[in-house]
Amino acid sequence: EQLARLKREFNENRYLTERRRQQLSSELGLNEAQIKIWFQNERA
């Protein structure tokens, strides 16, 4: 579920704002660094 949600977010926007990253962190139970790194890896 977390992965599917991250992929949906990535398809909508390849870059997250700090606020959006905080929201996802709270909703998915991941820390902000994990989300940031995931997005960086997807863009690579």
Results as ranks from 00 to 15, higher is better:
N41Q: 12
L28F: 03
Q40M: 10
L28R: 01
A4K: 08
E1Y: 09
L16P: 14
S26K: 15
R8L: 10
R19L: 13
E42I: 06
L16W: 05
R19Q: 14
L16T: 03
R19S: 14
K36N: 14
A44E: 13
T17K: 05
N11G: 11
L16Y: 03
A44K: 11
E42N: 05
R21I: 15
N41W: 10
R21Y: 12
N13V: 05
Y15Q: 07
Q2V: 15
R8N: 06
E9T: 03
Q34L: 14
Q2I: 15
R21S: 15
Q40F: 10
S26C: 13
E12D: 09
E27H: 06
S26L: 15
A44C: 14
E9S: 05
E42Q: 12
R14Y: 04
L30A: 00
T17L: 04
I35H: 00
W38K: 02
L28A: 02
E1Q: 10
T17R: 06
R21D: 02
Q22M: 12
Y15R: 07
L30G: 01
K7N: 03
R43W: 14
S25F: 05
E9A: 14
E42G: 00
L30I: 11
L6Q: 01
N31S: 15
Q23S: 07
G29Y: 02
E32D: 06
L28K: 01
N41D: 07
K36W: 13
R20P: 01
S25Y: 06
K36D: 15
W38C: 02
E27K: 05
F10M: 02
E27I: 10
E18K: 15
E9I: 06
L30T: 01
A4D: 08
L30N: 01
R8V: 07
Q22S: 09
G29N: 07
L16N: 03
E12S: 07
T17V: 04
S25H: 02
N41R: 12
R19G: 11
N41P: 01
Q34R: 04
A4Y: 03
K36H: 14
R5H: 05
N11Y: 12
F10R: 02
K7E: 05
N31H: 10
F39P: 00
E18F: 09
S25R: 04
F39T: 00
N11M: 14
E9D: 02
Y15W: 13
R21T: 15
L6I: 03
R43H: 09
R14F: 03
R8Q: 12
Q22H: 09
N13F: 06
W38V: 02
N13H: 11
Y15S: 08
R21F: 12
F39L: 03
S25K: 04
L30R: 00
